[in-house]
């Protein structure tokens, strides 16, 4: 049962990522991988929220597994972030390396900050 729930919510998460990152990348005409950035930052915010809401509450394991491990895990992505950074680094010279460094630092710092914000907001509920 657990596996079915994780699989189903993982499918939904991946589908949501495909839709959101494609739409953001089309709207924001830039070579910076902003689609993956928006997906990962909203995923980090969502994970913080879930964690905050779960503190001191008796939320069923299946709900946490479905929403956290399934949906948010399937929605956010680490591998795409890394491969896009490698492609930026290989796009040429100092400018490419600078873009790769930006693409590592911005999501990392903003992701942890947004997870913290989500945790704080989640605990109000």
């Amino acid at each position: 049962m657990t596996w079915v729930v994780i699989g189903a919510f993982g499918a939904l998460g991946a589908l949501a990522r495909y839709g959101v990152s494609g739409a953001v990348q089309r709207l924001w005409r830039t070579t910076f991988p902003v689609g993956t950035l928006v997906v990962n930052l909203t995923g980090a915010l969502g994970a913080g929220l879930l964690l905050g809401v779960a503190v001191g509450r008796d939320i069923p394991d299946l709900v946490l597994l479905g929403a956290g491990v399934g949906f948010l895990g399937g929605y956010s992505t680490f591998s795409t972030w890394m491969v896009e950074t490698v492609l930026a680094a290989e796009s040429g010279g100092g400018a490419g390396l600078r873009r790769a460094a930006e693409n590592l630092a911005i999501p990392l710092i903003a992701g942890v900050a947004l997870a913290g914000l989500g945790l704080t907001i989640g605990q109000w509920f």
Partner: peptide, 15 residues
């Protein structure tokens, strides 16, 4: 591979 890897859990772990 997108769903196998995760950024949301990674961020909350660091937090």
């Amino acid at each position: 591979l997108g769903a196998f890897t995760t950024f949301s859990l990674f961020s909350t772990e660091v937090l």
